[in-house]
């Protein structure tokens, strides 16, 4: 028993303090070593909230694909969503068509 569990670290020092051996005639001298972290790197970030996804996997993949497709390939198209897109586009098209000609 001691050999199996003795080396395992424990977070709470009070763990195993109530431990009674099953055979009282042969009391074990096991004192469990306690793991006391000296840093808090293992703590979760304070703003972390774990929840289930609201959208199911099918809808998520629809969105993923849409994101891939609608992601602009050039930063210049970023202001597509802006209000004067139409003008931009027409200007671009006319200039390109004249270039083509």
């Amino acid at each position: 028993m001691a050999s199996i569990l003795g080396d395992l670290p424990s977070f709470d020092p009070h763990n195993f303090s109530q431990h009674r051996p099953s055979d009282p005639s042969n009391p074990s001298k096991m004192v469990p070593t306690t793991y006391r972290p000296t840093h808090n790197r293992t703590l979760p970030p304070p703003d972390q909230v774990i929840t289930t996804e609201v959208k199911n996997i099918l809808i998520r993949s629809f969105y993923q694909r849409a994101e891939e497709k609608l992601r602009p390939k050039r930063p210049a198209t970023d202001h597509l969503a802006a209000e004067h897109v139409n003008k931009h586009f027409r200007a671009a098209s006319s200039s390109s068509s004249t270039q083509g000609l």
Binding site: K69, K73, R74, S93
Partner: peptide, 11 residues
Amino acid sequence: REIWNEESDNV
């Protein structure tokens, strides 16, 4: 928008 984003070159 989908077709717009398919190509990066204006022409």
